Amino acid sequence: MTATGADSASADLRDRWTRALVAARPTGPDGPDPLPYADNLVARWAEPQRRYHTSAHLIAVLDHIDTLAAYAAEPDLVRLAAWFHDAVYLPDRSENEERSARLAERALPEAGLSEPATAEVARLVRLTVTHAPAGSDTNGAVLCDADLAVLASAAGPYAAYAAAVREEYGFVPDDAFRTGRAAVLRQLLGLPRLFHTPHGAREWEAAARRNLTAELELLSAGP
């Protein structure tokens, strides 16, 4: 991406953050300036250790939430949760979701969000550990489906996604990575359903399972 393209994407992200935050907080446009919080989050999503969990992933998740927004009880809280769901991301750490949720719990009250709304955003961030929302959890269903929608990509984009995940774990030897990644794929394939919204079930479920199965077969074949 060119510098101009990156600047345009960052400006679009800042605008999307501002719209979601202003819509979600009780004071609306009257409150703390949203842009310092946007700047902090945009910088986090651009950190050098990221290969898949980048601002491009954030944009994709936000786009998918827009597609699924009608299913959510509180779509703007889901959008805020998307911003925070991998805001803390170190590939060699296992507590990224918890640390991201705690960041939301610190930042959002300062940004003018109510306590119940902040708690809901943090709950949604923690839900991305399992991607298993309860049947009545419409906010959780939308966030989890949006986060996993990449699994239903066409063959080329899916291969690029898998390669980016491998790059993030470049410090892991090949054999160990294949073993760990295969376990993740088997866990996903073992779920009764990957997607929980009607749109996700209809449009993404079958394609995602095909991609996961194909990747697992490649991993099982070895180098």
Rank of each mutant, 00 (worst) to 15 (best):
A81I: 02
D63V: 04
T54R: 03
Y52M: 07
H53N: 09
L80R: 07
Y71T: 11
N96L: 05
L68Q: 10
V61W: 00
A70K: 03
D63K: 01
A82V: 02
V78M: 02
A73T: 15
A73L: 14
F84Y: 15
P91H: 05
A81T: 09
W83T: 14
D92E: 13
Y89T: 10
A60S: 15
E74M: 10
L62R: 08
H85Q: 14
R79F: 00
L80A: 05
D66K: 00
F84H: 14
H57Q: 14
W83F: 07
E74I: 10
D63W: 00
A73H: 13
W83P: 14
S55E: 10
E74W: 10
H64S: 12
F84W: 06
Y89H: 14
I65Q: 11
V78F: 02
A60N: 13
L80M: 05
Y52N: 03
H85N: 11
I59P: 02
H64R: 15
L62V: 06
Y89Q: 05
D92F: 02
V61L: 01
W83K: 05
D86K: 00
A81E: 10
T67N: 04
L90M: 08
R79T: 12
Y52E: 05
A82D: 11
H64F: 02
H57M: 11
Y71N: 08
Y71E: 12
E95D: 15
I65L: 02
A60L: 06
D86H: 01
R93I: 10
L68K: 04
A73Y: 09
D66C: 03
D92G: 08
E74C: 14
A73K: 09
A72G: 07
V78S: 05
Y89K: 01
V88Q: 05
S55N: 04
D92I: 00
L90H: 13
A56D: 10
T54Y: 00
A60K: 05
R93C: 13
A82N: 07
A87D: 04
E95H: 12
Y52F: 13
L80P: 14
L90T: 15
D76C: 09
A60Y: 02
A56L: 04
P91G: 05
Y89C: 07
L77P: 15
D66P: 08
L68V: 11
A56E: 06
N96I: 04
V78E: 08
D76F: 01
L62S: 10
P91T: 04
N96Y: 06
A56Q: 04
A56I: 00
S55M: 01
H57I: 14
H64C: 06
P91S: 05
S94F: 14
A73E: 11
A73C: 11
S55Q: 06
Y71H: 15
A70V: 15
D66T: 12
A72I: 06
D86G: 04
D92K: 03
D63A: 11
A87V: 15
N96G: 07
D63E: 15
A70W: 07
A60P: 09
D92H: 10
D76I: 04
L58T: 13
L80C: 08
L62C: 08
W83M: 10
D92V: 01
S94C: 07
L62E: 12
L58R: 06
V88K: 01
R93N: 10
R79N: 11
A69H: 00
H64N: 15
T67R: 05
E74V: 14
H53I: 13
F84M: 08
A82S: 09
H53C: 10
L68S: 09
V61F: 00
